[in-house]
Amino acid sequence: MLQDKQVALITGGNRGIGYELVKQLASKGFKVILSGRDSEKCYEVVQKLKESNMDVSFVVMNVDNQESISQAALTVNEQYGRLDILINNAGVYLDKNEKLTAMDPSILEKTMTTNFFGTYNVIRSFIHFMEKQGYGRIINVSSEYGAMSEMSYPGGGAYKLSKFVLNGLTRLIAAEITDDIKINAVDPGWVSTDMGGPSAPITAEQAARSILWLATIGPEGPNGGFFRDGKQIRW
């Protein structure tokens, strides 16, 4: 089913930064699909936004599960037939500040499964929509903790590694894609969400704004960059 409106998909879109991204993109006139693991929570969020006449829907997708991702891609194809913007926002922070070599290996495995492999598999399953139309914008929500300089400091090792590898993935895919398809990583900063905690100085609304400019860049815009507050930062 083809339509004139651009279609955006946001993973982890039922709360925190993801919810704000959904709201702000929908208010700009995009058709927005939010994804999450819990269909009831996704449904509640969508109904709430529809009350404000926003063009939103949801698809159940667990980024830890390839079958779930493949099924979501089939659903998007059947219902919309296109995807213009993909924001990989779903992520976990499971570290309790143990040394990387002392932590339970399952913490590192779970973190990498969600933050890295989840994003990789979502991109792999949805990028063909963009290749088909020669246009697309992919945004990977990363963190300054993924910068190479952060690897010199202990703590948060599983999370840091997952974002470091995610940044590498961003660069590699940027080198591979053609046409007017762009992929960038963004650090939203320390945000007041379930993950960031109540003392974080940046609101989810502010964080969403700092991310969304990458969704509407023109053909001359950046590709394969790492940004915070609209400015390029070091890998």
Rank of each mutant, 00 (worst) to 15 (best):
P105C: 00
G189H: 14
S39E: 14
D194V: 01
S192K: 15
D38Y: 03
A90T: 07
D194R: 10
Q206M: 09
K231P: 00
I69F: 03
L100E: 01
T119G: 12
V76R: 01
V7H: 08
L74W: 02
D180P: 04
E109P: 00
Y159L: 03
F226Y: 14
L2A: 11
G157S: 08
Q71S: 14
E150H: 11
E20P: 03
K160H: 06
Q66A: 11
K231D: 03
T113H: 11
E20K: 12
F116W: 10
G29I: 06
R171F: 05
F227P: 01
I139V: 12
K163C: 09
I177T: 12
P105M: 08
N62K: 08
M1I: 10
S27Y: 03
V63Q: 15
I233S: 09
I181E: 08
T203F: 00
S52C: 06
K110G: 06
L74F: 05
T111C: 04
G134D: 10
I177H: 07
L9N: 02
D84W: 10
L9G: 01
V122M: 12
S106V: 14
A200T: 04
G134Y: 06
E51C: 02
I127H: 09
S68P: 02
E176G: 10
Y93D: 02
M195K: 02
S149Q: 13
L83M: 13
V63E: 13
F117Y: 15
S27G: 04
W190Q: 02
D180A: 10
A8P: 07
V122I: 11
D194S: 09
P222Y: 10
G81L: 09
L94Q: 14
K23T: 14
G29P: 06
K96T: 15
E78M: 11
I233R: 14
R124P: 00
D84A: 08
P188C: 03
N89T: 05
G225Y: 04
Q79V: 06
K182C: 09
R15I: 12
D55I: 00
G218R: 08
Y135A: 10
E51R: 13
I173N: 02
Y145G: 15
N97P: 00
R234N: 14
L100W: 02
G146T: 11
P188A: 02
N121Y: 12
P154D: 05
L161W: 09
G221C: 03
E205K: 14
Y159T: 07
I177S: 06
Q232S: 06
R209A: 13
A185P: 15
N97W: 10
F227A: 00
V59F: 09
N89H: 09
G29C: 08
I123M: 15
S149W: 14
P154F: 12
F126Y: 06
R171N: 02
G168D: 10
Y145S: 12
L214K: 03
L212G: 03
S199T: 13
K132C: 04
T113I: 06
T119H: 15
V56F: 08
Y145D: 07
G156D: 11
F226L: 12
D179V: 00
T111E: 05
N62G: 03
G134C: 03
A72V: 03
R234C: 08
T119E: 12
E176C: 07
N121W: 11
S52T: 01
G230P: 13
E205T: 14
G136P: 04
N88G: 03
N89Q: 05
N53F: 09
I10A: 03
N140S: 08
A26C: 05
E98P: 01
G230V: 01
